[in-house]
Each structure stands twice: as structure tokens, then as C-alpha cells.
Design a binder for these strands. Structure first.
Lengths: 221, 221
DNA sequence: TAATATTTTTAAGTTTGCTTAAAAATATTT
DNA sequence: AAATATTTTTAAGCAAACTTAAAAATATTA
């Protein structure tokens, strides 16, 4: 088992991310956009990944991960999210600061390191953004989560995650005290722009745009 | 300030390491041997590092680090040794297991990360092998340490470091209970091969080869 | 279905960081 | 000092991972 370059690892992650949502092959342009590279570079690399049997690749059709490629991608996600927990819980970074560092830390090669980090952190099941951390076999713990925008008037939920990870969005949520674990209730839906009036735990009320409620994931309560 | 590749960083570290001991320029072959590469590759890279003003390079003469290059090398050493402390103190790895992981972790780019890691670890001054950790400005705390082989009969010292970092040597020291902080006394010097009979704290006696005593650093007591 | 637009691939060229082999510079020995 | 040995550099070439530009395949639209 030759070990992969960081570059190759990043391709596998990108393909995983794209195929995760829609259940069809990833196309070249989508990968190019995800990795901020030209389509030509992607075509180039897909041939190499294919010869290493990390992806199923059919020219002009699209690409999916093989079982092996998928395992590697899931391990990378596991490492990324465990390091994010470390950075937030142990070194007290905020949830909007940790992505770039985790992006580098995830490439450190040592399964024993990840095993011990996981144990040290108390085998967390979710990262600081509420994303599930796959176990050592690559299994994700799934939750019944929906966008806040899907709640009806007078329904309540607990914030368990976000669908957008930009610093700007995360910092906005901090400002509004809309962090993970906060209980929210939809008081009113303004039909013309789908903005919401919601109440937070301590009797506080807040109006948020549809853009925000679409990207806030809650568990119905 | 363009950030350097891991490869370039490794060259700076190698040059620093070579110049650290002997106070003269590092020659091409020494660097090649340190990095396990051909001399041609070194010549090649030295030109590039020189154009970035990280080294003073004079053909057929040798190479030294510029102030800037030296600062980068010291920061890398700081990062490497702090991560080693993390791996041993927090994740309970042994001192012979941590080098390779630290070798990768040291390349993670974030000064805030290192600042916080240092604080979390309690601002340690030495790594698990007793090597000094430079402060954020690159200053090393120097100790009056000598090889155990330099002690006379009936002189005592405390083990504070090692000059050789191979797993084999470190594991041997563990087996003999010759870790950092152990107080040793030279009972007898066998002239024909310079092996030593020494006593450890709890009345235990031990005979060690000259190879061992030359690589064990002690503080005279 | 023919024309047009989009997507993907191929081709050619670049940079980084290595290699081997040969040439050049410096050191050592006789 | 001349001959030999060592060290260092240059030259040519290679693989990885990109780029731009052109060609080819697939999709869309009139």
C-alpha cells in the first residue's frame, strides 16, 4: 500500500464530498470548482487515480470512488474532524478558525496518532460544526436533522449543525448566540421573503433571513 | 513573505543542524547525507534558496543560513519539539516513537497554533529527549551538559539528554532505566575499552559501553 | 436534425525537485 | 609541481502536478 500524496488525498476528498450529496458520479467541472483548478488538471489526475484503483473512471461520463478510495476519503474526514475537536476543545479556538489548520493536520500519517487523539478527546461523535465524525471503520452516525427553514410556525428544534462553513456565517451565528445546542422556536414566517421570527431559550426574539435558516440544521423537538 | 515548501524547510533544518555543531559552512556532501539525496540535488536547491535570500551560498565553498533562514529553521525546531512534548505528555507515546510524527506536524502552518500549543503544554523548555525548545524568538536555553563519558571515577551527574536519537538506543535506555532525570555515579572506568560501571539511584549497578556513555548527556552534580 | 453551446479530453509547455553521468574545481599525495 | 582523488557543479532527463489552448465528445436549442 503505497501512501498517497497530499494532492491525491485532496482529490479523493473532493470527489467524496460531491458524491455524498447527490447520488451520482462527480463530473470534471464540479471537481475543478471544488479544488479551484482547471478541468484539464482534473482529467489528468483522474487517469492516475484510476490506474491506482482509487476511482471508477469512464471518460466523458464521470467518476466515483472505489471502496478503497472511499475508505481513504472517510479516514481523511475522520482525521480532519477529530483535529477540529482538538483545536476547539483543547486549544480553545473558535469554530470559524479551525478549518485551515485541520486541512493540514489531516494529512499527517499515523493511524496510532488518530487512535490516541480520538481516545484523548473522549471519542467525540461530532465536530465543532456538528458534522458527524466517522468511526475507525468509516461509519457515520446519522441524525434526523432538517434545515430550520423547514419548520412550520410554532414548531421548535435544537441547533445541531450548519450547512455552510464560511467564517462570515459562523461569526454571524456567534453574534446572534445561535450556536450548537441552542433551542429555537419559529414564531412567525414572513411569506414574501421567507424570513423568520424565532425565539431563543431565554425569551429573546430574533429575525433571520431565509439564507440563514436554510443553512442552520436543527433536530425537531 | 511567500511560504516555503516542506522540501525547502527540510533543507534549512538540515543546514542548521550541520552548522549548529561545527562552526563553519555546511558542505554539499554533508547536506546530501543528512537528507539522503545526491549532491546534485543539493547544488540545485542551494541556488534556489540563495535567490530567496535564505542562505549565503558561494560555489565550491559551502553554505550558511541567513538571519531569515536561521529564524525559519529555529521555528521549525521549536514546532518539532513542542509537538514531541504533546505526543509524549498528552498522548502518552514513548520517546522513541515520536520523531516521525513530529517531522510531519512541524510543517503545519499557523503561528497561533504553536502559541496555543506551547501555552497548553505549560511552556516546556525541553523536549522528551532533553533537547532545548527555542522560545518564539529562536533563543535556546543552554545548559552545562557533558557526555557521561567525560566524568571521572566517583563523579556523579543527572541524565538530561541524549546525543543519539535512534529508537534502538532510546529503547535500550528504557530497558536499563536510564531515562531523563536519573542520577548516575561513575564507579569504575575500564581503560581498555572505556566501558563504565555506574550506579543508579536505588543502589543498582550497571555496566555500559563507551558508545552508550558518549551519547548520554549529564549535568555534573 | 442541424446549429450552437457546454463539457471534457488531449496536447504542449511550465515548475519543482529529484536522478545519473560527465565536467570542473579543489584537495591530497607522491 | 604533477598526478591522483575527492568534492562540487553542470547538463540532460524524468515524474508529479499544474497551466493554456485546441480538439473532441456530449447536450441543448432553434
Amino acid at each position: 500500500m503505497e501512501s498517497l500524496s497530499q494532492t491525491e488525498e485532496n482529490y479523493l476528498k473532493a470527489i467524496f464530498k460531491i458524491c455524498e450529496n447527490e447520488d451520482k458520479p462527480a463530473n470534471t467541472n464540479a471537481i475543478a470548482s471544488e479544488l479551484q483548478m482547471t478541468a484539464a488538471a482534473i482529467s489528468d489526475m483522474l487517469k492516475r487515480l484510476s490506474s491506482k484503483e482509487l476511482v471508477h473512471y469512464k471518460r466523458h461520463y464521470g467518476v466515483t470512488l472505489t471502496e478503497h478510495g472511499s475508505q481513504i476519503a472517510k479516514t481523511l474526514i475522520r482525521k480532519h474532524r477529530l483535529w477540529e475537536v482538538f483545536l476547539c476543545d483543547v486549544l480553545n479556538f473558535t469554530w470559524d478558525e479551525v478549518h485551515e489548520m485541520a486541512e493540514q493536520l489531516e494529512h499527517v500519517q499515523s493511524s496510532e496518532l488518530i487512535f490516541r487523539l480520538d481516545r484523548f478527546l473522549g471519542r467525540p461523535k461530532f465536530d465543532p460544526h456538528g458534522d458527524p465524525i466517522p468511526d475507525a471503520d468509516g461509519n457515520f452516525e446519522m441524525r434526523k436533522q432538517i434545515a430550520l427553514s423547514a419548520l412550520q410556525e410554532n414548531e421548535s428544534g435544537v441547533v445541531v449543525g450548519v450547512d455552510e462553513h464560511s467564517s462570515a456565517f459562523l461569526q454571524y451565528l456567534d453574534q446572534m448566540h445561535l450556536g450548537l445546542g441552542v433551542k429555537v422556536k419559529v414564531l412567525e414566517i414572513y411569506k414574501f421573503d421567507n424570513s423568520l421570527k424565532i425565539s431563543l431559550g431565554a425569551g429573546k426574539e430574533l429575525t433571520i433571513s431565509n439564507k440563514v435558516s436554510e443553512n442552520l440544521l436543527v433536530q425537531k423537538k
